[in-house]
C-alpha cells in the first residue's frame, strides 16, 4: 500500500518525520532548553554577560540558600507547608460534597448545583481577587452589611490580617475548586454497580448504611490516588493565588516557595540564586513523587504514574 521504491528513500514515509519535526523543535525549545538553565545555579550569572563569561560559583548559592538565608527559607517553607497541610486536611470535602450531591433526588436540581459550583474553577485568580476586594475590603459588601446590622463597629480587615491569612487563603481555594474536584468523585459513584444498592436495600440497609458500606468504599481508591499525588505536590501550592493576594501586611504569612523564587529570580533579578531554589524544589518534588509511587505500589499493588 505504500509507494515503495526498491532503492533510495521512501519519501512518503519520511514525510511523517518531516511533518512532526517542527513540533519536536518547539518542544525542545520550551521544555528541554530551560533545563540547561539549571547550570545558572552554579555560576555568578549576569544577564548581560551570558553564561560563558560568568564566573563559576560552585555550590555557593546552595550554601547561601540553606545557611546564610536559612531563616528566610524556613519562613517560606513554613508558609508553604501550612497552606499545603490545610489543603490536604480539607481534601475529604469534595468527597462529602459528591456523596451529598448524589443523594439529591431531583435530577435537575443536582445538575443546577453542579453547574453553579464548578463556575468558580474557570475564572482566573485575578477575577477572584476582584470579587474578594469587592466583598472583604474595609468598605466591601460584607463590612457594609455587618455595620448596618450593628454586629460590628469597626470594619474587619480580612485582606491585611496576617494571622488569618492561611485560613482565608485556604477558604478561597476551597470556594474555587470544591465543585470541580467533586466531579471526579461523582463519576466514581456513577461507576458503582447499581445492583449493590438494590441488594443492600433487600437486606434492609437504610440510606446511611448504603453510603458507608457501598458509596464510600467505591470512591476511596480514587480519593487515595489523589491524596498521594497531593502529598507529592506539597511544595507546589501555586503562584497566582498568593501573588494576587500578596501585600506587605500579610507578606510574612503568604510568601510561598513559588513566590520566593519569583521574588529572588525576577523581581530582584538574582538569576543564579532563584535557579538554585528552583532546583532544590524540583529535586524534593521528584523524590516525593517516586517515594509515594513506590509506597503505593507496595501497599496497593498499583503504581500511580
Amino acid at each position: 500500500m505504500f509507494k515503495t521504491t526498491t532503492r533510495g528513500i521512501n519519501w512518503n514515509r519520511l514525510s511523517l518525520l518531516l511533518m512532526i519535526l517542527p513540533f519536536l523543535i518547539l518542544i525542545f525549545l520550551f521544555s528541554y532548553i530551560p533545563l540547561f538553565g539549571w547550570s545558572y545555579a552554579f555560576f555568578d550569572y549576569k544577564p548581560g554577560l551570558g553564561l560563558l563569561h560568568s564566573p563559576f560559583a560552585g555550590l555557593k548559592y546552595f550554601h547561601l540558600m540553606f545557611f546564610e538565608q536559612g531563616s528566610e527559607l524556613l519562613r517560606v517553607l513554613r508558609n508553604t507547608f501550612a497552606l499545603s497541610f490545610l489543603g490536604i486536611l480539607l481534601s475529604p470535602l469534595p468527597v462529602v460534597f459528591a456523596v451529598l450531591l448524589n443523594e439529591l433526588r431531583s435530577k435537575s436540581f443536582r445538575k443546577l448545583v453542579q453547574t453553579v459550583t464548578t463556575l468558580p474553577n474557570f475564572v482566573s485568580w485575578i477575577i477572584v481577587y476582584s470579587i474578594v476586594v469587592a466583598f472583604f475590603s474595609t468598605d466591601g459588601v460584607v463590612n457594609q452589611l455587618l455595620m448596618k446590622l450593628h454586629w460590628i463597629s469597626e470594619p474587619t480587615q480580612m485582606l491585611s490580617n496576617s494571622e488569618g491569612t492561611w485560613l482565608f487563603q485556604t477558604a478561597l481555594g476551597v470556594w474555587k475548586s470544591l465543585g470541580w474536584s467533586s466531579i471526579i468523585f461523582l463519576a466514581a459513584i456513577a461507576g458503582i454497580d447499581a445492583e449493590l444498592y438494590d441488594a443492600a436495600k433487600v437486606d434492609g440497609a437504610g440510606r446511611y448504611r448504603s453510603i458507608f458500606h457501598i458509596t464510600l468504599p467505591g470512591i476511596i481508591p480514587t480519593f487515595f490516588v489523589l491524596l498521594i499525588l497531593s502529598i507529592s505536590n506539597i511544595l507546589s501550592v501555586g503562584f497566582e493565588q498568593y501573588f494576587v493576594f500578596y501585600n506587605p501586611l500579610v507578606a510574612d504569612r503568604i510568601e510561598t516557595l513559588d513566590y520566593y523564587v519569583y521574588r529572588i529570580g525576577i523581581a530582584t533579578n538574582d538569576v543564579s540564586f532563584g535557579t538554585a531554589i528552583s532546583i532544590a524544589k524540583s529535586i524534593v518534588s521528584i523524590t516525593l513523587l517516586f517515594s509515594v509511587n513506590y509506597l503505593s505500589k507496595k501497599m496497593r499493588g498499583q503504581a500511580i504514574i
Binding site: 519536536l24 525549545l29 521544555s31 528541554y32 538553565g37 503562584f239 523564587v261 519569583y262 528552583s278 524540583s282
Partner: peptide, 22 residues
C-alpha cells in the same frame, strides 16, 4: 523515541527562572 520524548515533558519542569531566561 519520539513518543517518549513528548510524554516525558509532563514529568519535569525546569522552573520559573530558567523558563524566563529561555
Amino acid at each position: 523515541i519520539i513518543y517518549r520524548y513528548i510524554v516525558i515533558t509532563m514529568y519535569f519542569n525546569a522552573g520559573l527562572i530558567p523558563w524566563y531566561i529561555t
